[in-house]
Design a protein around this nucleic acid. Structure first.
Lengths: 100, 100
DNA sequence: AAAAAGCACTTTGTAATACAAAGTAGTAAC
DNA sequence: GTTACTACTTTGTATTACAAAGTGCTTTTT
């Protein structure tokens, strides 16, 4: 019987917006809301929803800070987030290997 | 400014079921409904819907044939499907490259 | 001091999507 | 002649995505 080529994919990372957030957080210490918004070309509400989703899944953490006196909310990946995303990437790589 | 790591991803292939169908069709000449169903562990209705979606997008074609006297519907990838999927894979690879 | 603007949301509403379950039509095997 | 199989379609529900507008707080501008 055929083997399922998509085992190990994480449902949370099926959304391209959440996928984008995680990819950036894998290589950047932290990002703020506005940069993320511009990068992914999404509306505030939409982005906020996806960020809440990622946070509720324990994959990112919110850091509320300041730049001078302006609020600056940044997002950071968690250990669990790194692990889950790495596994997802591995699953993707396996799938890609299968089609080549 | 940050560059969007997920440019070039195809919305149609965000669903893991459609992703699975396409992956298999990239390396198998054709597959039939039941094999696909077992492989992906989905219900008939759900699978049928995703197949219709892929067909309407011009990415797969349906072949209605027989094994002996039993009906045997198989699915084949189209040229357009191959192209679109290859581009999606490239986009995924680029994203993965970015996080390594 | 008042108005405008920016930040990071929350709320609201709508439309699309996913999915399971049940139904269907046409064989075919028992 | 009932049962089973195949490949759906239909129906209904629940989830999700998303835009748009509103909110509370602060800062900058006038």
């Amino acid at each position: 019987m055929l083997k399922n080529p998509i085992t190990g994919l994480n449902k949370v990372f099926e959304s391209r917006i959440r996928l984008g957030v995680m990819s950036v957080l894998m290589v950047n210490e932290e990002i703020n809301f506005n940069d993320l918004k511009q990068m992914l070309q999404v509306t505030d509400g939409n982005l906020a929803t996806h960020l809440v989703n990622l946070e509720e899944n324990g994959f990112i953490k919110v850091h509320k800070g300041f730049i001078g006196k302006k609020t600056n909310t940044t997002y950071v990946i968690t250990k669990a987030g790194e692990k889950a995303f790495a596994e997802h990437i591995t699953a993707l790589e396996n799938m890609i290997k299968g089609v080549k």
